[in-house]
């Protein structure tokens, strides 16, 4: 074979090999590492899966935060003003976590449809609202998201 063609052949096969390895890895990694976002009303209606991680977003209901006196366990309600879902979390809450503020909780639903959170995300400053939460609060969570384009 012509050396130049041979060189190209090697180059192309390397690219094919590497990219198929990459695609395989991506497919494998995407399989259970993406979380779908649900507003509380969807969870309450039973539309959220229980066997995988989900994200739940909404407002923390005023007066709903209960803290344990002896450990770091916390329980609170998240609402989109249509329905509320109870969230349990053990650990340190973010600085901007507060009643009446937006929050995103990540975790799995248990048998009684409470979210056992592994991570709590709050806003980054006083004025900022996570876009998912803002959309959920508009009460049209599955409508086209207007955050990408006006």
């Amino acid at each position: 074979m012509h050396p130049l063609r041979k060189q190209r052949l090697y180059g192309v096969s390397l690219i094919v090999l590497l990219s198929s390895a990459a695609i395989g890895l991506v497919a494998f990694a995407l399989r259970d590492n993406i979380n779908l976002f649900y507003p509380p009303s969807e969870v309450a209606a039973g539309n959220a899966p229980a066997d995988r991680n989900i994200r739940l977003g909404g407002m923390v209901v005023e007066g709903s935060i209960e803290r344990s006196e002896t450990s770091l366990a916390t329980q609170f309600l998240v609402t989109d003003y249509e329905a509320s879902v109870s969230v349990r979390y053990t650990g340190i809450l973010p600085d901007l976590f507060a009643e009446g503020q937006g929050v995103v909780a990540e975790g799995r639903l248990n048998a009684s449809r409470e979210l056992i959170a592994t991570q709590i995300l709050a806003k980054h400053d006083e004025n900022y609202m996570p876009p998912e939460v803002a959309a959920a609060l508009e009460g049209k969570s599955s409508a086209p998201a207007d955050s990408l384009l006006p």
Binding site: A29, N33, L36, F37, A135, S142, S147, L148
Partner: peptide, 24 residues
Amino acid sequence: LFPLVMDAFSLGKYSVGPPYFNAV
């Protein structure tokens, strides 16, 4: 971009976490 694209075509709101990136 995956979450943004899915969102733009209203196929659901996803988030892709560190496990994906680490795995690849």
